[in-house]
Design a protein around this nucleic acid. Structure first.
Length: 433
RNA sequence: UCCCCGGUAGCUCAAUGGUAGAGCAUUCGGCUGUUAACCGAAGGGUUGCUAGUUCGAAUCUAGCCCGGGGAGCCA
């Protein structure tokens, strides 16, 4: 018997096949049953009549939600079935029956956030959550494919780090061997600056950790970040890479995950536009835009969530804001030669209010300036000796950025909260399950 | 750390000072084209915790606990 996945059902019209999955729901109508099966690739309606398949009917009758089943039957096009195809069930093997005493907790009705997060391991079985996770996988695949195609070499950065990249207040501290302290990485950037000097163009893609006491729809304490770094690349070129990367991800998801976007009821017309070039505006122009909208922002202010939305609403695709005041940016950012009070930094703001998905900059390559900045920020020079070595031995201008995977995927999916787009979200006050 | 909102049946919610209720889920019965199917019946409650006001508290007050949204900060 041919075993197929539900997403392939349309290719087997008229044929007898087997599906291995779970009972998602069942509608009963006397001597006729309409079980809905899911197998992780989609859902399909079954039909089972007592008169035609008494054994299969008996096996299905009263079967509980999420019981695991192997079903065999003929696929047929059917207007009345959700998805356009249904399976005429004539054989059912119940692999495990969910006991009536402990019914599956996730219903087809609405649930509260707390309940869903406590049951994340089961919540992810629903069509919407499964679609999101499949889109996330496609985004990761497309991102790697794009970086590889541009000649970037994947160099994985460490998770344990000896010191902070940007201050210690938001670090997770862990006991290393023999009571030594270590920290979970906030960013692989400093390390890939080293690998960039070794290999030219590199990137890292992995989990990062921030103990920020942030409770918003845009924050996780553990999230994935793709960070490219390239020698001899300056700010404008880094921005070009960023728009290419985001465009490639969006276009791949549109092309390869159309069914999942449909499941999410995502309005894809706004994603179609996401192609280079993206608009680029300076920080000072961004402040002017805000003031035009009667926002009290002035030079020197950081751009908050509401401000990001005002700016991104001016455009039909992501916008890049560049050359921020150096005073509000990180110690390692290269000052603009013509305006030393500005840092050669940029952020990419996603449309539709999703905010910052990329932050990047050109890095300081001058040894003396970097030492000066370390001291100004009261950072421990000893811990940064290896980093300063990169400026002692053949230092060159170089740039990079970090793209937050969950924020990017949340935007593409139109998700309300980034906790939906990672299999097991880690948030302030929540590490279960 | 700060501001705002919430906590009642397994789940989602109603009851605003006077007998704790509905839908879904579960159990039992009915139904041959259902679309979160529908119809009938049953079981299911220490109203987050503690104290106070009151003849009487899910409801008012205080403290605490838990959760959600946001600010700051960031991707």
């Amino acid at each position: 018997m041919t075993v197929i996945t539900i997403e392939q059902a349309g290719k087997y019209d008229g044929q007898e096949i087997t599906i291995r999955g779970w009972l998602y729901n069942m509608r009963e109508s006397g001597k006729l049953l309409f079980p809905i099966f899911r197998d992780g690739t989609g859902i399909i309606q079954g039909v089972c009549a007592l008169k035609e398949s008494p054994e299969a009917f008996a096996a299905l009758k009263g079967l509980t939600q999420e019981s695991s089943v192997i079903v065999t039957g003929k696929i047929r096009a059917e207007q009345r079935a959700p998805g356009g195809y249904e399976i005429g069930v004539n054989k059912v093997e119940v692999v495990q029956r969910v006991p009536e005493s402990t019914p599956f907790p996730i219903q087809l009705k609405e649930h509260g956030v707390d309940f869903l997060l406590d049951h994340r391991h089961l919540w992810m079985r629903t069509p919407r959550q499964a679609a999101i996770l499949r889109i996330r996988a496609e985004a990761e695949r497309a991102a790697r494919e794009f970086m590889d195609s541009q000649g970037y070499i994947l160099t994985d950065a460490p998770i344990f780090t000896p010191a902070a990249c940007e201050g210690t207040s938001t670090l997770f501290e862990v006991n290393y061997i023999d009571d030594e302290k270590a920290y979970l990485t906030q960013s692989g950037q400093l390390y890939i600056e080293a690998t960039a000097m070794a290999l030219g163009k590199v990137y890292t893609f992995g989990p990062t950790f921030r103990a920020e006491k942030s409770k918003t729809r845009r924050h996780l304490t553990e999230f994935w970040m793709l960070e490219p770094e390239a020698a001899y690349v300056e700010l404008d070129e880094a921005m070009g890479l960023a728009e290419g990367l985001v465009s490639a991800i969006v276009q791949c998801v549109l092309k390869n995950k159309a069914r999942e976007l449909e499941t999410l009821k995502r309005d894809t017309t706004k994603l179609q536009n996401v192609k280079p070039p993206f608009p680029r505006i300076s920080y000072e122009d961004a402040i002017a835009v805000l003031q035009k909208h009667a926002n009290p922002a002035k030079f020197g202010d950081d751009i908050g969530g509401d401000e990001e939305t005002i700016i991104s609403n001016e455009f039909d695709r992501p916008v890049m804001v560049h050359r921020y005041p150096a005073s509000i940016k990180a110690f390692y950012m290269q000052p603009d030669a013509e305006r030393p009070d500005l840092a050669l930094a940029f952020d990419m703001l996603a449309p539709e209010g999703y905010g910052e998905i990329i932050g990047g900059s050109q890095r300081i390559h001058d040894y003396d300036l970097l030492v000066k900045r370390l001291r100004e920020h009261n950072l421990p020079e000893d811990a940064f000796q290896w980093y300063l070595d990169l400026r002692r031995y053949g230092s060159v201008p170089h740039s990079g950025f970090g793209m937050g995977l969950e924020r990017t995927v949340a935007w593409i999916c139109g998700a309300e909260h980034i906790r939906e787009v990672i299999p097991f979200p880690r948030m302030l006050y929540r590490v279960y399950p």
